[in-house]
Design a protein around this nucleic acid. Structure first.
Lengths: 193, 193
DNA sequence: TTCGTTTCTTAACTTAGGTGAACGAATTAT
DNA sequence: ATAATTCGTTCACCTAAGTTAAGAAACGAA
């Protein structure tokens, strides 16, 4: 697990022995069981997550309905907006599978950043990259129909379609479970001819 | 104009005289006429923009149709994804109005960041903040209908509805101009009773 | 000013997504 | 193992968005 993290970090900066040790002395690895809720609506939090193995999901609870907006799998990072704005969370974060993750605290990050300026650089690069990626996802979402979105997902993240329940995928695609079911049947029909 | 920029920066870091001078010696202010295209599909670029006055817009050209995905107005910053990925741009950036902006080059930024570590901090904070904001916008988009999106926009950015042509607003809302027109009529009808 | 283009609206029709309900299949809890 | 829930699919019906087309209004360029 440590290697996965180091490997990820090496995409942004190169670490000395001392820096590696500083990271591992922080006790940031955590194992969480499927179904664990990491963050609830209304809670305040300073934690960011990086998924080493497994899958976590974010969702809103609107009129008793879960509206899933994102999934984070291996090598993906999530800093909930409430951590940045320092206001109570608008949504839930929960584990879809048994998950191993890195949980880092904002205060701890600040300390690391001031001690090792390299970390600041990594954080900047990472958030710039995530911002650009998310922009692309958003643009694709806006410019395509539910069916196109599903086909796009099938192409880009086939694993998600396997590991995530349909009704959660549906709201991730901005539609109802019934529509997703229908849409899938429609696609099947087409591909048969 | 210089004051607007300094005021914005002061939200993230505090500057010394020397640092201010360093910024202004870079010759980053630019005036652009309405209709000017700052970036074309297929072009490579290293420029980020910060709008001081006016409005710029990003759009894709798909089957001869412009699909507008974002607007940037006073005090908003745009770093096109292609600047991060260093690949040819997938979209266009153009000026909706006569606009005054700060154009900064990635190489120049890197130099400033290494000379003044404070800048690195500002860049990190800014992109973390933008990432969180964009996440919220994306989530709202996913969990609401076109009509709700329009009402939400009316509430959050009433200025946009005044200054942006309807057909561009429509694709920004993920619908056709006809649907937006109809939807507006529907809302009017309701509010009259 | 005038001509041409772009923009906005309206309408009729088509299509796809939302809703409510029902039912078996799969999962989970006891 | 069994009961209870959750999940996925299907259906019928409703509503809203897409499409095509046409005309009016606003805007820009010559």
């Amino acid at each position: 697990m440590k290697n996965i993290l180091l490997n990820f970090i090496s995409n942004y900066i190169s670490l000395t022995e001392e820096e590696m040790n500083a990271i591992f002395s922080l006790d940031i690895f955590r194992s969480v069981k499927k179904g664990t809720i990491l963050l609830r609506e209304g809670q305040k939090s300073k934690e960011s997550y990086f998924v080493l193995k497994g899958c976590i999901r974010t969702y809103f609870l609107i009129d008793g309905e879960e509206k899933t907006t994102a999934f984070y799998t291996e090598m993906e990072a999530l800093t909930p907006p409430c951590v940045i704005s320092q206001t109570p969370s608008e949504y839930y974060v929960s584990c879809l599978e048994d998950t191993i993750l890195v949980a880092s605290n904002a205060d701890m990050e600040a300390e690391m950043n001031s001690k090792f300026p390299k970390f600041e650089i990594m954080c900047r690069k990472l958030s710039e990259e995530l911002l650009a990626k998310q922009r692309i996802d958003f643009d694709e979402f806006k410019t395509s129909s539910p069916e196109q979105r599903y086909l796009n997902l099938l192409h880009k993240r086939p694993d998600l379609i396997q590991r995530v329940p349909q009704h959660q995928l549906a709201s991730y695609l901005g539609i109802t479970p019934q529509s997703l079911s229908r849409l899938r049947a429609r696609i099947m029909e087409k591909s048969k001819g």
